[in-house]
Design a protein around this nucleic acid. Structure first.
Lengths: 123, 123
DNA sequence: TGTTTGTATTAATATATATAATACAAAAAG
DNA sequence: CTTTTTGTATTATATATATTAATACAAACA
């Protein structure tokens, strides 16, 4: 699990870790059942505090993307949801679409990009 | 311009204002050439500080969505970009798509949602 | 002239983020 | 059983951001 952290970003480090693990799962780089590093190991590797990684793991557990084990890191779960758009997802998507529209990106171009990204990283 | 602010949200107020104006423009509720309220008027209406609205306006100006006038609020601009996906847009889109995939939302369902949102609010 | 406007500054406060040090119960390893 | 590892919690500290408040000021308008 290689993390690329940007310490000058406005996105908190724990959120960057959470996002990259989520992307790793969705992209197939992290498979269901696979064990994640311990918080201490990942913290050392990334050069951040133990609690920062712990916070990311707790968030991922709360969201259902990984399962906590009392020992030995955490385990990746496959699909978690019920095939439903959450309000959070809808509002985030709506915002991106609005920005795209105002950037002059056509519906067709936008959908092509979505298709490509969705298919990317399939096993 | 009716603003719906959530003061308990983790999204800063100035960003909520920025987002809602952006959504208003993309959705056709705010037309190019239309004048936005003065920072003081909008601040009073929303119950926030003058500088918070000013910060939102400055951000929107910097992004090219509105144009500043030395007096009398600001003016809505139409399309601003060059029909190109920014890196920021791409990473945000990729994150949403990943979340959708892990929620069990199919590519077809996702694209239908995108289409609907893109067409929504057309004049 | 007098008022309105966007912006700037300063100060104060609150919250969030991250680190550091320490602690502790649970689980694994020996 | 003893030791070590692990995830989590606590406390303290430092830093950054967000928001409000009060004030100021030049530019534009009436």
């Amino acid at each position: 699990m290689l993390l690329q952290l940007d310490f000058s970003s406005d996105v908190p480090i724990y959120m960057q870790i959470r996002n990259q693990i989520l992307l790793g799962i969705a992209g197939g780089k992290l498979s269901p059942g696979e064990k994640l590093p311990t918080v201490r190991a990942l913290a050392d590797e990334a050069g951040v505090n133990m609690m920062t990684v712990s916070k990311a793991y707790q968030l991922l557990k709360q969201e259902g993307y990984i399962a906590g084990e009392r020992r030995g890191g955490a385990v990746v779960i496959g699909k978690s949801g019920e095939s439903v758009f959450s309000d959070k997802m809808k509002s985030a998507l709506k915002l991106i679409i609005s920005e795209a529209k105002l950037s002059g990106i056509s519906k067709e171009t936008f959908i092509k990009q979505v298709q490509q990204m969705y298919e990317e990283g399939e096993v």
